[in-house]
């Protein structure tokens, strides 16, 4: 496979090093521009399997508010975030909701659970 060059910005810490990466598909060949070792790890992961923490809301019936915030329990495959959003758009919970409650287990077969970020008491 041919080698390609790309630019990434490391977000492991607020410094935000501008990385120049050489890679063969998902495999890192070389990286420069990093101020510390964590930049290498970031580049490797970002090329092989980019993931993000995802936070959104789902509907809740009978709650203090009409939505309850939820988030992924672990970083989620970046390329499938819109798919996850569409799925969560269909979810509706019943109040009360507990903080940490599993809203959706093993979302899209990724092994990542979706958890309620907060409790949502029932409306008075």
């Amino acid at each position: 496979m041919a080698q390609e060059k790309d630019r990434l910005i490391c977000v492991t810490c607020p410094m935000g090093c501008a990385l120049e990466v050489t890679h063969e598909g998902p495999a890192l060949v070389e990286v420069s521009g990093h101020a510390c070792r964590r930049g290498i790890e970031y580049a490797r992961a970002e090329l092989a399997d980019p993931r993000r923490m995802v936070a959104t809301t789902v509907r809740v019936r009978g709650g203090l508010h009409p939505l309850v915030p939820v988030g992924t329990a672990a970083p989620f495959p970046k390329g499938r975030i819109m798919e996850l959003m569409a799925l969560l758009r269909e979810v509706e919970l019943e109040a009360p909701v507990r903080a940490g409650q599993v809203v959706l287990a093993d979302a899209l077969g990724t092994g990542v659970d979706i958890l309620a970020s907060r409790s949502m008491p029932a409306a008075d």
């Binding site: 936070a55 959104t56 809301t57 907060r118």
Partner: peptide, 18 residues
């Protein structure tokens, strides 16, 4: 509702509501 809270002092990446 996004993540990024608590990283400095709690060493955890929490959402705002959490």
């Amino acid at each position: 509702i996004h993540h990024g809270f608590g990283v400095e002092t709690l060493r955890q990446d929490l959402t705002g509501p959490a």
